[in-house]
C-alpha cells in the first residue's frame, strides 16, 4: 500500500471565539480532538459546528483563542493563523457541507488533485511531461486507484463529477480528502440529504477509514442517530458554546443536551 499510515495527532482548541459583526458564532469553545477515537460534533442548526470546522481548517480566522496542532514526537504549533493550504499539508483534510467538488474535472482528476501536496512537478515539468513528471503522475495514480477501489468508484472514474448523482459526489469528496493521506478527516454533514441505505453505507466507509486506514474522523452532524451509533466521543455545541462532552450514552443523558434538542420541559 503506497498510502502511508497516518501519525497520531491532536488538535487542541482553546477558548476560541468567532464574531461576525454583532453575531457571535463561537463563544469560548474549548475542545480536544485526538487520534484514537472517532469524534462527533453535534448540535442544532446554527450552533456553530461548521464555523468551528472552518476555523480548524483555516477558512475562518478566530477572533480570539488559539488552535494548536501536535503530531506525536513532532512538536506542536499554532494553526489558527495559517492559511488553509498549509493546514491541509499538516494532515488535516475536510469535506464540505454543500459538496464543493471540481465539477468540470473527472472523478480521477478530483482525487489526483488531492495528491497535489505530495507531488513536486512545476509548470515546466508538466508542459514537457518527460521522465520524472510522467513517473510521478503514474505513481500517484496508483495511490489514487487504492482510494477508488476502497470507495468502489471504479465505474465513475472517468466521468465528470458534475454529472454524478448526489450520493456519488459525496463519496468522491470523501475520496478526495482521503487522497491527501490526512491524520484527521473533518466531515461536515457527510450524511445530509441521504436516505437510510446511503447513510448506512457511508457510515461503514467512515468506520473503515477509522479502523483500517487509522485516520481519525471527526463527523459533524445535527442528526444524532447515526452519529451516536458509530462515534465513541461526542461533543455537543449549542449557541456557539460546548455544552457537553463525553461518550454517546453520557451525552444522551445530559440534561443540557436534552434542553438544546428537545426544549426545557422534555426531561421534567
Amino acid at each position: 500500500m503506497s498510502i502511508r499510515a497516518p501519525e497520531a495527532a491532536r488538535i487542541e482548541i482553546d477558548d476560541v471565539s468567532l464574531r461576525f459583526g454583532g453575531v457571535t458564532a463561537l463563544d469560548g469553545v474549548t475542545l480536544e480532538l485526538a487520534s484514537g477515537s472517532l469524534h462527533a460534533l453535534i448540535g442544532p442548526n446554527g450552533a456553530g459546528k461548521t464555523s468551528l470546522l472552518n476555523c480548524i481548517s483555516g477558512l475562518y480566522r478566530p477572533s480570539g483563542g488559539s488552535i494548536t496542532y501536535s503530531i506525536e514526537g513532532g512538536g506542536e504549533r499554532r494553526i489558527d493563523r495559517l492559511p488553509p493550504h498549509r493546514i491541509a499539508r499538516l494532515g488535516i483534510a475536510r469535506t464540505f457541507q454543500n459538496i464543493e467538488l471540481f465539477k468540470h474535472m473527472t472523478t480521477l482528476d478530483n482525487l489526483m488533485l488531492g495528491r497535489h501536496m505530495h507531488m513536486r512537478g512545476g509548470v515546466l515539468d508538466g508542459g514537457l511531461y518527460w521522465g520524472r513528471q510522467q513517473r510521478e503522475e503514474v505513481s500517484e495514480r496508483r495511490s489514487v486507484e487504492e482510494v477508488i477501489d476502497f470507495l468502489e468508484l471504479q465505474a465513475v472514474r472517468g466521468d465528470l463529477v458534475g454529472n454524478l448523482s448526489y450520493g456519488q459526489q459525496k463519496l468522491v469528496e470523501l475520496g478526495r480528502a482521503l487522497a491527501i493521506e490526512p491524520n484527521f478527516l473533518l466531515l461536515d454533514e457527510p450524511m445530509a440529504g441521504m436516505n437510510v441505505e446511503e447513510k448506512e453505507s457511508l457510515a461503514r466507509f467512515v468506520l473503515d477509514v477509522y479502523e483500517e486506514w487509522n485516520i481519525t474522523p471527526v463527523v459533524i452532524d445535527h442528526d444524532m442517530d447515526v452519529v451516536m451509533e458509530i462515534c465513541d466521543r461526542v461533543s455537543v455545541l449549542d449557541f456557539g458554546r460546548v455544552i457537553a462532552v463525553g461518550s454517546p450514552d453520557e451525552v444522551r443523558a445530559d440534561p443540557d443536551v436534552i434542553d438544546a434538542y428537545l426544549g426545557e420541559e422534555a426531561h421534567v
Partner: peptide
C-alpha cells in the same frame, strides 16, 4: 476554496 483546503496555494 476547496482547492485551498486540499493544499493548493
Amino acid at each position: 476554496i476547496a482547492a485551498s483546503a486540499m493544499g493548493v496555494n
